[in-house]
Design a protein around this nucleic acid. Sequence first.
DNA 1: CCAAAAGTCAAACAAGTGTTTTAATCTTGC
DNA 2: GCAAGATTAAAACACTTGTTTGACTTTTGG
Lengths: 240, 240
Amino acid sequence: MSNQPRETIPAGKVHEESGKATERTRAKLLAAAGEVFARAGYYNATIREICALAGANVAAVNYHFRDKLGLYTEVLRKSVGVPQNQAVLKMFEQDTPPSEVLRHVIRAMVQRMCGTDRHELNLRFQLMAQELARPSPVRSGVIDEAVRPIYTRMLALISSMLGLPPDDPKTRLCTHSVVGQIAHYVHARPVVAQLWPQQKMTPEQLDQIAEHIADFSLSYLEKAARNRRNKPARNVKRRK
Amino acid sequence: MSNQPRETIPAGKVHEESGKATERTRAKLLAAAGEVFARAGYYNATIREICALAGANVAAVNYHFRDKLGLYTEVLRKSVGVPQNQAVLKMFEQDTPPSEVLRHVIRAMVQRMCGTDRHELNLRFQLMAQELARPSPVRSGVIDEAVRPIYTRMLALISSMLGLPPDDPKTRLCTHSVVGQIAHYVHARPVVAQLWPQQKMTPEQLDQIAEHIADFSLSYLEKAARNRRNKPARNVKRRK
DNA sequence: CCAAAAGTCAAACAAGTGTTTTAATCTTGC
DNA sequence: GCAAGATTAAAACACTTGTTTGACTTTTGG
């Protein structure tokens, strides 16, 4: 009896991006979910918010994806499995000195994790960052498929700079030092904002942060590499 | 219902556990809440878990403290306002070279934040760490009263090492680099555990981590200080 | 000793969440 | 065109959480 209470599909979008209405709902849900999950993380995101953003009913999530976790998993698969993914890993195989490669990688991670726009490529990193801070039920899989590839290459890169095996504790520690500096600006953002109000996370400032992290890290890495080259038979040891 | 809303909690009571039963309940609640809040953070902690640990009824929280936030605030006040607090800040005024002070501070923060036992002193740092990752409604106050004092001294310390003003962007960036490395092991603990299973966070390994973070950071800080001393009129700039 | 206040307890309440149901609507194949 | 299936919608459900209630028990002050 009742006319459609709220705006049904506006007349003009009969032939949208992908033809069938059902596929459009699915796509809109995925897009909205990516947005919300990337901003709020798995637990803080609510299905109702995602559906409101997508203009869909809450039951749509259960129909198209099994449940919240199914939707999240699909978002991850879309985000992790895309070919651009390879572009990220290609960063590690540039034809430049390792220090420059590291600098590029750091800059990319800072911009993608801290930036506010969530297009395709950034999404992956922002989801990863959320997973770092508040692991979802699929944490293990996310880490293995999304985090570990980058982590492994990071280990390899730093390993080559240090002249140590990739699984040497020192290599690990250095890698975590680099990643930790980056992740800090993502995780502790509200705290940083209060302690350092001038820091507004503009693209220019993000670049400055990235440059600093690179400088800060390379100082140790290059020194350790020099020490290692001079006396390659023993551990790097220079304090006290 | 006759209680005036937002009445402050009776803070002057200093009776210990041996006192009346009511004070004992209060004390047990505070202890349990400290434990749970430090482990799970404000949002993940539940009143029911706290009360179960304290052996009290859920209504006790609303009776003795106004609500969950009142309990949390009281835990913070107990933890932040204690005289041991000063001991932490004293670390910054040791009669040793700045680099050694920094090393001590880093070691203390790593052990206190990452350790599993939650006695008095560790509590403060673990609560701070939780507040860094997932700010509670009283975030602003916590930062001003608990985080900022340490942050300010850290800025001052690194400022003195760099020969730059405490609010120089470089000083800020370096401070965040140090803190970020530490916080990473707290926030991303499950991820680190999966990527680096050998890392068990034993006291010995925590010490190794702390030493590394100090070495890693001092490399840049001391080099920057040297460069600054040699040409004090211009910015530190040495790459490319 | 005993009432009144303070404190405790089990239970209920209120609000938010993910999920399911049921019916209505749309799409599709014949 | 139309019935069967696919999709959507509104409401209800189940569960968790913080909070409150009202009866009960303990403590307190005279």
